[in-house]
Write a protein that binds this DNA or RNA. Sequence first.
DNA 1: AGATTAAAAGACATTTTTATCCTTTTTATG
DNA 2: CATAAAAAGGATAAAAATGTCTTTTAATCT
Lengths: 143, 143
Amino acid sequence: MLSNSSKYAIKGVLYLALNSDEDHKVMVRDMHGVVHVPEAYLAKLLQELSRHGVISSTRGPRGGFFLSKEDRKRSLMDIVKVIDGEKRVKSCVLGVKDCDTDQPCVLHKLVGANKSKFIKVLENTTILDLIEGKRDVEEFFPV
Amino acid sequence: MLSNSSKYAIKGVLYLALNSDEDHKVMVRDMHGVVHVPEAYLAKLLQELSRHGVISSTRGPRGGFFLSKEDRKRSLMDIVKVIDGEKRVKSCVLGVKDCDTDQPCVLHKLVGANKSKFIKVLENTTILDLIEGKRDVEEFFPV
DNA sequence: AGATTAAAAGACATTTTTATCCTTTTTATG
DNA sequence: CATAAAAAGGATAAAAATGTCTTTTAATCT
């Protein structure tokens, strides 16, 4: 659903949101400890975000990463899109391939469509619940 | 959130739910095409599930995998537990480490607690929304 | 201008996940 | 009892994700 890289990136941006602006840039060296992400790896992720215009940065002395006013209007999805790609996040919880919100598989209705009561569904739905009233294999495996 | 392996396993079990019982066992050879999982890999996963008593199997001629009446009462979580381990599934969407349902981080309230309106939250929540009213870094990074 | 600082970029290493192959064990059946 | 069918198990391979290191480029300060 979300790669660690995306989680790292979100944490990083969150840190920047709290600790930076145009006049107070932040070096990776100073933030990686707080967000618990390996320094070089965090640097890479932030560079990628910067390259895609999701966050801002300048090089050289007094340089670093920061969020502009505009940057702060970005959604978390904007971050995730850059790191994981949209497809990965939106993909069906079960569909390894072509199932998504537009073309949902049968399980989608249960766990996918509202991809978020997911844990509860996993715990409370038995195999029996799943298949009741259904005998057609094709219904479950559209792809 | 869910590994492909778990998705594969769920699909496999689903297939068994639809196509097997004590008297009609199913060989991996006959099911892997339908569920779109590599034969040898699916075999491994089903073996693992069988070893943990989540599904049933017998060897030899006319053998194969199947679901007993009891097996059908299992939850999807039972499957996922075996393949991914409980920790992985329950882990916080953002917490790479110790954040979970019991000790939620701040983002948890937003995306984690109801880990399922997640996509919508991602799309609709801006950085600004996230930090409004908060200036304390520690609040965001408990671990 | 020159030295220094910090991100950008890209090559390389490690680990985890996914996938395959091959041998062994079990078991039904003729 | 021999044979063949099928899962079980182990070793290995490939791919993807994660992580590190080194060099290059740009900004700043003296």
